[in-house]
Amino acid sequence: MSENHASPSAPATAGEQSGAPAAEATTASPAAASSAAASSAAAQQARGRREPMFPDGPAPDPAGSHHERRIRSFQPRRSRVTTGQGEALRRLWPKWGLDIDGLSKLDLGELFGDPELPVVLEIGFGMGEATAKMAAADLGTGILACDVHTPGQGNLLGLAERNGLDNVRVANGDAIILLREMLVPDSLAGLRVYFPDPWPKKRHHKRRLIQPEFLALAATRMAPGALLHCATDWEPYAEQMLEVLSAAPDFENTQSDGGFAPRPDFRPLTRFEGQGLDKGHVVHDLLFRRKAH
Rank of each mutant, 00 (worst) to 15 (best):
T13L: 12
E16V: 05
Q17F: 11
T27Y: 02
S29T: 15
P30F: 11
A33G: 11
A38G: 09
A38N: 08
S39D: 10
A42D: 00
A43F: 09
A43G: 09
R47T: 14
E51I: 15
P55Y: 13
P58Q: 09
D61S: 09
A63L: 05
I71C: 05
P76W: 12
R77Y: 15
T82D: 10
G84I: 05
G86I: 02
R91F: 10
K95D: 10
G97F: 07
D99R: 12
D101T: 14
G109R: 05
G113K: 03
P115L: 15
L117S: 01
P118D: 15
E122D: 11
M127H: 05
G128I: 01
M134G: 04
A135R: 02
A136C: 03
G140K: 02
T141F: 02
C146Q: 02
L156G: 00
G158E: 06
E161S: 13
D166P: 00
D166Q: 02
G173E: 11
L183H: 01
L188W: 04
G190Y: 03
R192G: 02
Y194M: 12
Y194S: 06
W199K: 07
K201D: 09
R203T: 14
K206M: 12
R208Y: 13
L217V: 09
P236H: 12
P236E: 15
E239I: 07
S246C: 08
P249Q: 04
D250F: 01
R271T: 02
Q275E: 13
L277W: 08
D278F: 03
H281V: 01
H281T: 02
H281E: 11
V282N: 12
R289Q: 08
H293R: 07
